[in-house]
Amino acid sequence: MNIGDRVRLLHGKEEGIITRLSSGGQVEIEIEDGFRIPALKSEVVVIDAAEKEYFDRQEGEKDGFIQPIPKTDPSARAAGIFLAYVPYNDQVHDLVLINHTKKSYLFSVDELSGNQTKNLDAGVIQAQSFRKFAERMMRDFEQWPGMKIMLVPLNKKFEVQEQATERKIKFKATNFFKHKGKAPVIDKEAFLFKLNDQEKVLDVKKLNEELNPEEKVSYPNLKIKRPPAAVDLHIEKLTREHDLMSNSEMLQLQLGVFQKNLDDAMATGMDEITFIHGIGNGVLRKEIHRFLSQLKGIKYFRDSQKTNFGYGATTVKIHE
């Protein structure tokens, strides 16, 4: 039984990832929504891959919701810049930056501690190459610091400049251990995360604004789209890159979507709108309620009925 193993409680329905082992015979398990629970080793069992295949059950299945987890990360076959945690042995993992593109990149990797940073490595990583910049002990997973990685593509000829990429990374066990696959270039098994998006479409409007900063573009008769009656704020519904986001970044994205949909609901004359925020640790619900309590232009807000959303949603009644 090791950190990163998916386990199930013998006398309960909970499943999760082991995040800590103690000498006293206890383990700490991170279940869905980031909750962590203690348990005795004798009370948990490792979920074997053969068991999953026999029962035709995928990781992430819970209460009828299935989040498919491929055995090999399909992003490994696509071009891009990757962060790979490559096992050196059972405990030590090498942190490797992989450039699986046809272009060289300037890069900088910083370790984060609150508002302070410490540079781990910087330089140029050539096309189809890799660079090790640190090591991590798996037993210290809970103490791994966050990181900020910046990537700037280098053009060897005249061509449209791709946008620089910045990623702030702080992993949760429930996300980290799902990303095991074959890393490109080095051709080794690793925990693999794509850092940039090679399929971005050129934003012509933004480019024109940058080339003509004095020109004001107006859009008369712009219509505001009426939002749905219930807006789901679960992070996996808002972005595919939530695995690489810190808790504060995810919260800011969720609050931004909440405020935009509330503004649109009020502008389009909706009578009420419901925001599904889940139960979790209650931070998102608290921030939504704090914002609504200071807002003029609404009649009231309340937790939605249990039969509809479980206590994981807030309904806002808007002034007519």
Results as ranks from 00 to 15, higher is better:
M245Y: 11
A183T: 11
G181V: 01
H234V: 05
L295F: 05
R167T: 11
F65T: 12
E15C: 09
I17L: 03
K237C: 05
R226L: 04
V109R: 04
T165N: 06
L284S: 06
G80R: 04
M245D: 03
D271H: 13
V44P: 03
I31K: 03
L97H: 06
F158N: 07
F177A: 08
D48I: 11
L222M: 11
K237V: 04
P220H: 10
Q294K: 15
Y88D: 13
A229E: 15
R36N: 01
L120V: 03
A49R: 12
T314D: 06
A122H: 14
E199G: 01
G278Y: 03
P227L: 07
G278E: 04
A39G: 10
G4F: 07
Y54H: 09
Q67E: 14
P213M: 11
I276H: 01
K41W: 02
G25L: 09
G60A: 09
V217Q: 07
L284A: 06
M270R: 14
E135K: 12
F158Y: 10
Y311F: 14
I18N: 04
F107D: 01
G310T: 11
F291W: 07
R36T: 13
K200D: 10
R6V: 13
E209H: 03
N247T: 09
N212I: 02
K317N: 07
M137Y: 11
R131D: 00
A265V: 08
K205R: 12
S129V: 01
G278I: 05
R6Y: 08
D232H: 13
I29Y: 00
K260M: 10
V257K: 11
G123R: 12
R285T: 03
T315Y: 03
K306Q: 14
E32N: 03
K102P: 00
A84C: 13
I47D: 05
T174W: 01
F130Q: 11
G181L: 07
D5C: 06
R36G: 00
D73L: 14
E272L: 08
K52W: 06
L233V: 10
T19L: 06
S23P: 02
K118T: 15
H319G: 02
E249Y: 02
N247A: 15
I81G: 00
K156F: 07
